[in-house]
Amino acid sequence: MAEPTSGLLTEQEAAVYDRQIRVWGVDAQRRLSKARVLVVGIYGVIAEACKNLVLAGIGSLTLMDDTPVTLDAAASNFLVYVDEIQNQGKSVAQVCADAVGDYNPMVRVQVQQGNILEKPIEFLDDYDVVILGRSSLSLRKKVNALCRSRPQRVAFYAVDVRSSCGNLFIDFQTCTFKSQKKDDDKELEYSKKTCSLEESLSVRWNSLPKRASKLFFATRIVDEFEQRENRQPGQLTSSDLPALIAFGTERLQEQGLAMVPAIESLLTKIAENGTFELSPVCAIMGGVLGQEVLKLLSCKGEPIQNYFFFDASDGKGMIEEVTP
C-alpha cells in the first residue's frame, strides 16, 4: 500500500480526494488511509457502506460472506453485476469485492472466507472496525464481545434494514476526536465512550425517555422473537404477526410499558416484508453508517452514540442513547 510517510499526500490522493479534504482535512485523510475495516454479511445496506468507505479512501476493506451469489443477492445490492450471477461458485463477498475494489484503486479490497466465530481470536487484531450486517441477536452479542476482548480497540457496528426501517448499533468503546461544535467555534478535542450491546440491552425500557424512537422497541421485539422461534433474521411472514404482537405486548409489559399502535404498525411492516430492504433506506443507513465509521477512523467530527434509527414512514433519522 502506497502510504505517504511524510505529511504529504500523493499527487493522486490529492487530486481524487480534493473535495473531501476540504471537509475533513489532510490529517483525517491520512488516518483514513491507514484504517482497516472488516465487513461480515453483505446486504444492500452493507453494499452502500462499502461503497462509501472505499470512495473515502480507507486503507483496506475485507469482505466476509461465503453465500453463493444468486439473483436474490442482486435485488438490493448494486455491487452484484448481473453477468456475475452466471459465474457459479463465486461467493457474494468475492463478487462484491471485485466490484467495489474497482471504485478506488488506492484501497486494498480483499475477501476472507469462513465464519467469524470459527476464526482464531487474534484474527480481529488485523482490523480497526468490524461491521456486522443482518445477523441474529446472539451473533451480534458474540462478535461485539470478541471485539471488546482485543488489546487494541476494535470498534463494532451492527446494521440492518427491514423494509423501510433501518437500525444501527455502535460500540466504538472509546473515541477521541476533534470537532467544531458550532459554526464559528474553535476546533477542540473531545472524547466519548460507549457500552457493549449486552450492557445496552440490560437497560430497562421504561427508563428511556418518552420520546424514544419506537423503532428501538420494535427491533428489540423482532430480535428476541426471531431468537425464541429459532428463525433466521428476516425470516418472518404475516402469518407470524399475531404471535409477534402478542410477544411484543408481553415484553413491553415486562419492561413497564404498554403496546402502542406505532409499535404495532412497525412490527406489522417488518413481519410482512420479511427479508426485503427498501433501497432508499439502505442508501440512508449506509450513508450514516459510512459517515460514522469515517468519523471514528479519522478522529474528526463527533460520532453518534449508540443507536441510530430511520423510519421512512415518518422520515426521521434519530439518534438514541441507551447506556446503563
Binding site: R22, N52, G286, G287
Partner: peptide, 26 residues
C-alpha cells in the same frame, strides 16, 4: 477553493440525500 468556489463534498451526504429524494418520489 476560494477562487474556484469549490463546494465541499462527500459521498455519504449525497447517498443519504439521494435516498431521501427517492422516498419523496415514492
Amino acid at each position: 477553493g476560494i477562487a474556484g468556489n469549490i463546494i465541499h463534498a462527500i459521498a455519504t451526504t449525497n447517498a443519504i440525500v439521494a435516498g431521501l429524494i427517492v422516498l419523496e418520489a415514492l
